[in-house]
Amino acid sequence: MLHTGTVTGVVDGPRLLDAVDIARAALIEDGHRPGEHRHAVAEGEWAAAHYFDADLIGYRGWQWCVVVAGAPGSDEVTVSEVVLLPGDGALLSPSWVPWSKRVAPGDLSAGDVLAADPDDVRLVPNQIDTGDEFVADPDEIAQISGALGLGRKRLLSREGRDEAAQRWYDGDFGPGSEMAQAAQFPCCTCGFYIPLSGSLRAAFGACANEFSADAHVVSAEYGCGAHSDMVAPKGEGTPAFDAFDDGVLEIVAVSAGAGADDPDGRS
């Protein structure tokens, strides 16, 4: 919202701070209904900004700002600008975030398309594209090429690998998780642990235990109570209490006519 114009009046440099009525008149002329005048701020020797409450629906805490100006030897006050500005406690919209940076893990659903950027640092171009890495004959060289990633146009870069490794290491299936801290043995010694191939083999694998982290990538240092070497507790009862023999209970028959004054059923 911009308003420019000239309003005649008596002006003296410092007295621009007192030009409240002129600033208010500029707002009214623009069709606004200014509220209480809050304060004025000098903006140099020959300019001042006046702030008024803005009584607008949806703009709680905002304020009108009217900039007035003058010149030496002139009896005119020039209204330079009228703007709506947020004040203390103003209701503001969130900072703009590009769509590509708003996507979060778990947002992708069936039918959605999420293409990696051509310059995605997590990916690098591959050397060749054979197009036949999944042939039926296991003796074919294409099978070896597919295992090495030679059948793909793009491969994971060092940055992409390092980001994934750090994310997995710091996540729910890393050595710092509550489950891992309470475990007796690490995953790298478990029979359900399937190591990854390539450079991440020494640090990560997949869990094949359906009662634990099944199908998740886990750190070799992760662990849980379902380790393949875990020994079941022995003995009867719980570790805190001995087994209770209910055969020692004595069954006492109570007559139907027994009352509160005769608990043993005697008349």
Rank of each mutant, 00 (worst) to 15 (best):
G265K: 12
N126A: 08
L148H: 10
Q127A: 02
P34I: 01
H227Y: 05
V66T: 02
V218H: 09
H39S: 04
H37C: 08
G131N: 04
A182W: 13
E76D: 07
T4V: 04
V113F: 13
D53H: 04
F185Q: 12
G259K: 10
D107E: 13
P186S: 10
D88I: 06
G89S: 07
V124K: 03
C190A: 04
A142W: 09
P105N: 08
V217F: 15
L196R: 04
G131F: 03
S228Y: 10
A260Y: 13
R33N: 15
H216E: 14
Q63F: 01
G225E: 13
S228A: 15
T6G: 04
E36T: 09
N126Y: 01
V252W: 07
V97W: 07
D129L: 14
D112Y: 05
I57F: 08
V218C: 04
D132A: 09
Y193L: 04
E36F: 06
L108F: 14
D162K: 12
G106N: 09
D119S: 05
C65D: 07
S255G: 08
G35L: 00
Y51P: 01
V67G: 00
Q184T: 10
D229E: 15
T130Y: 10
G176R: 10
A208F: 11
R167P: 04
S228H: 12
G31H: 08
A220V: 09
P72V: 06
P175W: 06
L148F: 13
A182G: 07
A90G: 01
A220G: 12
M230F: 14
P34W: 03
L17P: 00
L155E: 05
A243S: 02
G225C: 09
F192W: 15
N126R: 03
P14S: 10
A142Q: 09
A243K: 06
M230N: 14
E81G: 00
F134L: 01
D139P: 00
L84K: 09
L196C: 03
D172M: 06
N209G: 13
A19R: 09
V11P: 03
L200I: 11
S199A: 13
G205A: 00
Y51D: 01
A23K: 06
V68C: 00
G58D: 05
I251D: 13
E140D: 15
A240W: 14
G223F: 07
I251R: 11
D242Q: 00
C207S: 09
C65M: 15
G265Q: 07
A47W: 02
Q181S: 06
G35W: 04
E210W: 12
I28P: 03
G87V: 02
A260M: 13
H32I: 08
T78D: 07
G265S: 11
A165P: 10
A116P: 03
R15N: 12
P72W: 05
A110N: 02
A147W: 01
A25Y: 04
G257T: 15
G87E: 08
V68R: 03
